[in-house]
Design a protein around this nucleic acid. Sequence first.
DNA 1: TTCCAGGTGCATA
DNA 2: TATGCACATGGA
Length: 281
Amino acid sequence: MNYNISKEKITIMDNTQFNPKHIFECGQVFRYKKTGNNYTIISEDKKAVVTETENGFDITTNEISYFVNYFDLKTDYDKIKYDLSKDNIMEKACKFGSGIRILNQSPFETIISFIISANNNIKRIQGLIEKLSTKCGTKCDDYYAFPTLKQLSTLSESDLRQLGMGFRAKYIYETSRLLSGIDLEKIYDYSTENLLAYLKALCGVGPKVADCIALFAYHKMDCFPVDVWVEKIYNCFFANEKLTNRSKIRSELIKKFGINSGYAQQYLFYYKREMDKISKN
DNA sequence: TTCCAGGTGCATA
DNA sequence: TATGCACATGGA
């Protein structure tokens, strides 16, 4: 993809494979804010603002190299979309969400965020993450960083319940204990199978949340998180016979999309959710 | 009032 | 291994 780097911003000269609306609203990330056509994103203790320009977008930040990696700018998404578009439904989904990119998010933040996502809705997940950050994250300029493990570990299960985490309070509390002394960067080298097994040993991390963490934090593209939406998508577009077993749905979709499964999942998730929004209005 | 949301853990068979 | 249920909370 065509982009330039200066001291204070990344200039994207391309609006076919980078679109902040698609990137942020496709469900892979929760800490972003839309103001007009601009998006502000906070990841760990870092902030970037994405604004539209004549030829593309500017990403303004003090953390250039972090956000080059975060936005996965070195990957050519045109080739991925070309490969996926051999399937008719995928062709529509890729066109619809043409600017989606799979972010490289912080493993710890992704683990906690997707534990919170269990049986929850996106708006409420965003609110809970914001409350958690305000409660124990470091104050930076005009925002709060996502808490570090050390900061999160100062909260009791009862504190987490009071924030509104509900039954997930225990999961977050237990997982913060289990992660003590663990270097989450070290497991980047794990095979997908070993990584998923490792993640599923955490409290509140089952098959779906583990897939999300592997995909959104460790960039494992041979994962296909299956939730209520993907179940709908599978039975609507791809099923020979209706399936409700999510493990089977996952296997079928990975068989179909192989090493591009993670990309396919996000294009489809965004496509189906936005289409449903349109048909409701 | 009831249903639902990017599910998981646990008991049971 | 597979199935069923409880689990917090708030918006529609």
